[in-house]
Design a protein around this nucleic acid. Structure first.
Length: 884
RNA sequence: GGGCGGGUAGCUCAGUUGGGAGAGCACCGGCCUUACAAGCCGGGGGUCACAGGUUCAAGCCCUGUUCCGCCUACCA
């Protein structure tokens, strides 16, 4: 027995570093490629290669790691596939910024040199986030790490593009798309963030061709009028049935615009007349198609006005807005201006206001893919947890519009399409074509656009496993068991993986999708750089240790609720880790041997009880994790380890461990303690991997890593012991009753009390008698006498527990007023409870209609309360008498 | 405009077939009791947002109201 086995407090940093490299060195994260029933797989949501670890990653990765470590302990083959995402626009922006700092820009370099530059950047900085994930303890199979621009994944991207094209599911066309004038690229609808902004509604009069009056239209973007090619009214609008003219004149441009009739127009809005700008508004574009209108592109791709804008050519779009308004005012066309709130789209990468613009782009026809993806969830092939997200998923899938997948940037998968300069034939193929199959031209020109990054991430669950080759990995691990992700990329990523997985693997990419919450600051605000409320996970790790941090995340990961993170909370769980450490410290003082092969043979009540409880907790934890109820699993363990194992069990068995109850007791208790501590470590390991591994190696009788241990059994009931739990409940109740007297009567803990326990029930007396020593030890008694009700000690404080009345003899020290107060308070509490119960029992309907077992329970409760009250009342009366 | 989530102790939140209102932190009182003061023991504290309804019984189910948050949308 020596206390130098463990230091007095747990110091995480050195331990974390040591064990993580041990795990890597021993290849404990490596997945076997064998096909088995118990194969379990997760693909990591690949973080951006430009990213730095934030709270979202921390939560996401912690939950996955908990699942993976748990499944390994349960004996599964686990593959956790890691990697990063090439993040086209974001990465290109980062490298362009770096070039700018060197006074260069990508156009000087040229495409090939620029891409080389990006790869160089990735080589140097791209691993940062991976190392940060390791600090969290992530047990990914790092040897399989993938990158969306890897050769293998690029082949997959190419094949998918080519196949979809030949299936008619990819097409190219001139449409209105979302254009970011800063990134100079098209964006998908999803990549536009809408924000309500204060703006104006400008009412502008377009005079009739023949002069006079005219039609008043309203717009939030006056500069777009330069590209107007019509004015539309509703066909049924009586105000416009008999017009003076069929044409109006576009002010400032003096262009003649037809007045057209289209049912899209909302008669109730404004004047019921709509200016039509086909090249700069998606609705107007549709209207223009129906009426064969001209499309005038007045705003250029760089955000400046084109030659079509006449005298406004070259003006930046917002400068132009001002100028147009000014001109309208001076020329007398501006009827009025009203303040107006409206949604404005912003680029999700750079926050620049998006310009709807006419452009030639590549699209995926998603409807047919989406239908299958909806079916897969409806049929239960994939389950979304929590289920509230299922409807969101359906809604989005059902209203999906074609996906613009081409980007006018350089960093990404270049679209495998070539155009013949002579005959304009388009060739889409896996390999670079030598010549035009139609006219034989040898100088084919490849499409310069690259694909949306999400196009390649959509293939992640199978491209990372080697598809399109039929690899052992795919056989063993596709479909994956679960995808763990935040709801913010449900559409971006999850939905698209569903579509692509079903289309190309003929099976869903994952059986479950667990959608977790967002991590917010302690006021519930989203963490953002601009608000300055970002908490860096690495700072938390430095301050409190990875284990404390992980446990905090898990404990707060309740389904459907965001997590408010603050250091204060992590501190609480740091205390828990330390508590565990110290419990181990105590245990190890007494566990000089290991007992791996001997089944514990519990003799004492605490031993029987703790084994029974451990088994129950094991079951609860397993059920909770199987249902992705991380908070329940973590909370159960926290409660069990601290308040049952430490507070009751360890305190209860100290006498046995110290040998005060004979060698036999000491030996059997040691076996039980060894077993329970071992199981506790295993149960906790998925949540707090480092501290459990550290203790594991100090615990005699363990071999190798705790990662290879077996999850405690819970399928059978070998240790379930209801009798022990019942007895323990009585004993702890008695002890708490005595402690309560001590506390409320302000009696020093050092003062050993003499207590008499009286009960009419012989069985109760017998139980207490059997555990007399335990009560004396934990309640700090001088003596405990067990009696049938009879003479009452004269000056005693009283507590009633179940059918036991406790008398703590207080000769000379009793404070009668305080005791009266205490008893009255207790009786008042009972009266309140009694009122409720009596009311129920007085209700005929309750007695007749409620299930018999419920009625019985309430009756028992009533009897118990009445008896308890009687006893307390008797003591109250007695104290009153004594006082006189 | 549509949809979703939430309102439970001073704070942050659990509460999954409707039948005991709970945890952590904070607070009050007492303890250096031989693992841990990052600790131990005891204690106080809630009209479960509001109003109805279903039921013998509602924090939980239904309807309405209200406040907060989020997602989504092509009314200029």
């Amino acid at each position: 027995m020596s206390s130098d086995l463990l230091d007095k407090g747990y110091v995480p940093h050195e331990v974390e570093k040591r064990w993580y490299s041990f795990w890597e060195k021993e290849r404990l994260f490596a997945a076997s490629e064998a096909v088995a029933e118990t194969n379990y797989s997760i693909v990591i949501p690949p973080p951006n290669v430009t990213g730095v670890l934030h709270m979202g990653h921390a939560l996401n990765v912690t939950l996955q790691d908990i699942l993976c470590r748990y499944r390994r302990l349960r004996g599964d083959n686990v593959l956790w596939m890691p990697g990063t995402d090439h993040a086209g626009i974001a990465t290109q922006n980062v490298v362009e910024k770096k070039l700018a700092a060197e006074g260069k820009d990508r156009h000087q370099l040229g495409r090939d040199k620029f891409i080389e530059e990006v790869w160089r950047w990735r080589q140097e900085y791209g691993g940062a986030i991976i190392n940060q994930l390791k600090r969290l303890g992530a047990s990914c199979d790092w040897e399989r790490e993938r990158f969306t621009m890897d050769e293998g994944l690029s082949t997959a991207v190419r094949k998918v593009f080519v196949d979809l094209y030949h299936q008619g599911l990819i097409y190219r066309g001139n449409y209105i798309i979302n254009w970011c004038p800063r990134c100079m690229t098209a964006l998908a609808d999803l990549e536009v963030e809408h924000e309500e902004l204060d703006g104006n509604l400008w009412h502008v009069r377009y005079p009739f061709k023949e002069g006079g009056g005219g039609i008043i239209v309203a717009t939030t973007r006056p500069e777009t009028m330069l590209g107007d090619t019509a004015v539309a009214v509703h066909p049924d609008d009586e105000r416009y049935q008999q017009l003076e003219s069929e044409f109006v004149i576009l002010p400032l441009m003096n262009r003649e615009l037809p007045i057209i009739k289209d049912a899209y127009v909302d008669m109730s809005f404004g004047t019921g007349a709509l200016k039509v700008t086909p090249a700069h508004d998606p609705n107007d574009f549709e209207i223009a198609n129906r009426h064969n209108l001209e499309r005038v592109k007045a705003i250029g791709d760089d955000g400046n006005m084109t030659a079509e804008a006449g005298r406004f050519e070259g003006l930046e779009r917002y400068a132009c807005r001002k100028a147009v308004v000014e001109a309208l005012k001076t020329e007398g066309y501006l009827e009025r201006v009203e303040p107006y709130k409206h949604g404005v789209g912003h680029c999700y990468r750079c926050k620049t206001v998006i310009e709807p613009n006419l452009s030639k782009q590549w699209f995926v026809r998603v409807k047919p893919l989406a239908e299958k993806a909806v079916e897969a969830v409806k049929n239960g092939h994939t389950t979304i947890v929590p289920s509230m997200w299922t409807n969101t998923y359906y809604d989005w899938m059902n209203n999906i519009r074609d996906w613009c997948i081409s980007r006018q940037i350089w960093w990404g998968h270049q679209i495998p399409a070539w155009v013949c300069p002579d005959c304009e034939e388009t060739i889409v193929a896996m390999d670079t074509p030598e010549s035009c199959p139609k006219c034989g031209n040898n100088n084919l020109v490849q499409e310069t656009d690259v694909l949306d990054t999400w196009f390649s991430s959509a293939l992640w669950p199978f491209s990372t496993m080697g598809w399109p080759d039929e690899t052992p990995l795919l056989k063993a691990y596709y479909p994956t068991s679960v995808l763990v992700t935040g709801f913010d990329i449900l559409f971006f990523w999850v939905a698209r993986m569903m579509m692509m997985g079903i289309q190309f693997m003929d099976d869903v990419p994952f059986k479950d999708v667990y959608v977790h919450a967002l991590v917010r600051d302690e006021d519930g605000k989203k963490m953002s750089k601009s608000l300055g409320n970002v908490i860096d996970p690495l700072t938390i790790i430095e301050g409190y240790g990875t284990d404390a941090f992980r446990l905090t995340l898990a404990a707060f990961a309740a389904q459907g609720r965001d997590i408010k993170m603050s250091e204060k909370r992590v501190e609480g769980y740091q205390h828990f880790v330390n508590k565990l450490w110290n419990a181990a410290r105590l245990s190890l003082m007494h566990l000089t041997d290991g007992y791996p092969d001997s089944e514990p043979n519990p003799q004492s009540l605490p031993d029987r009880w703790i084994l029974s409880r451990t088994q129950a907790v094991t079951r609860t934890v397993a059920d909770a994790l199987d249902g992705y109820r991380f908070n329940e699993a973590a909370g159960t363990l926290y409660q069990f380890v601290w308040h049952e194992f430490c507070d009751w069990y360890l305190e209860a068995v100290k006498p046995a461990l110290y040998g005060n109850q004979g060698e036999e007791n000491q030996a059997s208790t040691r076996k039980v303690l060894w077993r329970v501590l071992k199981d506790v470590l295993i149960l906790l390991h998925p949540f707090v991997p480092f501290v459990t591994e550290e203790i594991w190696h100090k615990l005699p009788g363990t071999e190798g890593s705790i990662m290879k241990a077996d999850f405690p059994t819970f399928r059978d009931d070998s240790f379930t012991d209801p009798e022990a739990e019942k007895e323990m409940e009585l004993i702890t109740g008695v002890i708490t009753g005595i402690r309560n007297i001590r506390g409320e009567m302000n009696l020093s803990p050092s003062m050993a009390l003499e207590v008499a326990a009286q009960s009419e029930a012989e069985s109760t007396r017998e139980i207490i008698n059997r555990h007399q020593e335990l009560v004396i030890h934990l309640a700090r008694l001088k003596s405990l006498s067990i009696q049938s009700p009879g003479q009452r000690p004269k000056t005693a404080a009283t507590a009633v527990v179940e059918d036991v009345t406790l008398f703590a003899s207080l000769e000379g020290v009793i404070d009668f007023d305080k005791e009266l107060q205490r008893l009255s308070k207790e009786i008042a509490k009972l009266d309140q409870e009694l009122a409720g119960v009596s009311k129920k029992l007085g209700n005929e309907n309750f007695l007749n209609k409620a299930p018999a077992d419920i009625v019985e329970k309430v009756k028992e409760k009533h009897t118990g309360l009445v008896e308890k009250k009687q006893k307390l009342k008797a003591n109250l009366d007695r104290i009153r008498q004594l006082e006189q």
